[in-house]
Amino acid sequence: MRCVWVHVEHAKAHVICNETSMTVELEKAAFKGLDEDHLRLNDPGNEACRLHSNGTHVIGFIPLNECGTMIKEDDENLLFSNEITTFEDVRDIVTRKHLLEVQFSCQYPKRGNVSLGFTVHRDNQTITEKGFGTFTYNFEFYPDILFDTMINPHFYPLDYEVGDKIYMQIDATTSINNTVLFVESCSASPYDNPNYQPTYPIIENGCVQDSTVVIYPTSHNKQFRFSIDAFKFIGLHDQVYISCSVILCEAGNPNTRCSRGCLPTTPIGRRRRSAVIETGAHFISQGPLRLQSTPENKSSVTGLNLNMAFIAGCLLAAIAMICGVMIHKFKRPAVRYQPLSSIEQ
C-alpha cells in the first residue's frame, strides 16, 4: 500500500490508506470563506460518506467500495481515487462554481493481499430523503427459486460454477405504505464499483439486457426478485459484484419513473423532485461471487482427450502390425523353382 499526499494551494491534505478504506484529512485553512457543510465526496448519498470536522480539519472516512470511489488499474497496481468538491444543492449533478476541488487516491499492488480487505456481504443501506423519510434497501442472494431463506452472510464470498442460476432479491423497507420499488438498472463488474469498466449490463433503463434473466412474482410492491445464469469475465477476473440502481416512487402515480417501466433510451428530465413523487436513484450492491469453470465441462474435455488418446494408440498399433507383416513378407526367402531329378520324376 502507498499513501498519496495531495496539496491544495498552500495547505495539505493527508491521506491514510489501509486494506478497506481511505481516510483523508483536509486543513480548514485551505478553504477559508467556504462553508464546510457544503463539501462533498463523489457520491454523498450514503450516511457513511458524510464528511466530519473538528477544530482544524475536515475528515472523511471513505470505504474503497463506496462513496463514488473510482478504480483504475494497470499491470501491477490498483488505484482507488475520490475527491472533495463544493456544492450548493445536494441534488445538483453539475456545477459551474467549483470553488474547491481536492483529489486524493490510494495505490495497492495487485500481488498484495488487498483483496482480503474488500468488504464481503454488504449491509443494508439506510437513506433519508424529503417526502419519503428514512428507508432501507436490502440486497441478498438466495440458494433457490423459493426465496425462503437468504444465504448466510458468513458464507461470502459465494462460489458459483459458470451456468449456475444466481437468485437475487431486493427489498425496500419504509414506514410509508403508498410506495413502490423500481429497479432501473443492474450491472456486473469485477469490482464493487458500478463505474468500473468493463461492466456487463443486466438491466438497463428498466429493460432486461441479458437473455438468461428471469423476473419472479413477489408478495408486495417494495420487493424485486430475479435470477441470472452465472458467467465469468474474460481474462484474469474470477470475481463478480452485482450493482443495481433503485428508486422508490409514489404508488399509482403515472408520472413517476416507476410507472413508465422499460424505456429503451435514457429519459431526459424525468426527475420531478419538487413534487416529491419519487426518490433519487441509489446504488446498492452485493458480492463478491467467485466464478469457476463447470467441473462437468472439464470432465468431458478430459474424457474426450482420453478417448482420443486411446483411438490414436489403436491406430498406431494397427499401423505397426501392418508394417510388421509387410517387413516380414519382404524378408522371407524367395521360393526357388528347380527341375526334379529323373528319379523323382
Rank of each mutant, 00 (worst) to 15 (best):
M1T: 11
C3T: 09
H7P: 10
V8P: 03
A11Q: 12
H14M: 07
I16P: 00
C17Y: 05
T20Y: 12
E25Q: 15
K28T: 05
G33P: 06
L34H: 13
L34P: 04
D35T: 02
D35W: 02
L39A: 08
N42R: 14
D43N: 15
D43V: 02
D43Q: 07
N46K: 11
R50P: 00
H52K: 13
V58I: 11
V58F: 04
I62Y: 04
P63V: 06
C67H: 04
N77S: 10
S81A: 14
I84A: 10
T85M: 08
R91F: 12
R91Q: 12
D92P: 03
I93R: 14
T95S: 15
R96Y: 11
K97C: 06
K97V: 05
L99T: 09
L99E: 15
L100S: 11
V102G: 04
C106F: 02
K110W: 03
L116S: 14
T119D: 12
V120S: 09
H121C: 11
R122S: 08
N124L: 01
E129L: 03
G131Y: 06
F132W: 03
G133Y: 04
T134N: 10
F135M: 08
E140G: 05
Y142K: 03
I145D: 15
F147M: 06
I151T: 14
N152G: 03
P153S: 03
L158M: 03
E161R: 00
G163R: 00
I166G: 05
Y167N: 07
Y167V: 04
M168C: 10
Q169F: 03
I176H: 14
N177K: 09
T179Q: 13
S187F: 02
P190M: 04
Y191Q: 06
P194I: 05
P194M: 06
N195T: 10
Y196P: 00
Y196S: 01
Q197A: 12
Q197I: 10
I203F: 14
I203M: 14
E204H: 08
N205C: 04
N205R: 10
V208E: 11
S211H: 10
T212L: 05
V213S: 06
V214D: 09
T218V: 11
H220N: 15
N221H: 08
K222Y: 05
K222N: 15
F224H: 15
I228C: 02
F231C: 05
Q239K: 13
Y241Q: 01
I242W: 02
I242L: 15
S243Y: 04
C244E: 00
V246R: 00
C249T: 00
A251V: 01
P254T: 08
P254F: 09
N255K: 14
N255R: 13
T256G: 04
C258R: 03
C258Q: 02
R260L: 11
G261E: 09
P264V: 07
T265V: 13
T266I: 07
I268M: 09
I268T: 15
R270F: 15
R272D: 15
A275H: 07
T279M: 10
S285C: 01
S285H: 06
S285N: 12
G287V: 00
G287D: 02
R290Y: 00
S293E: 15
S293M: 08
E296T: 13
K298M: 10
T302R: 12
G303R: 08
L306S: 10
F310S: 03
F310I: 14
L316K: 07
A317S: 12
A317D: 02
I319P: 01
G324S: 14
F330D: 08
R332W: 05
A334T: 10
A334D: 07
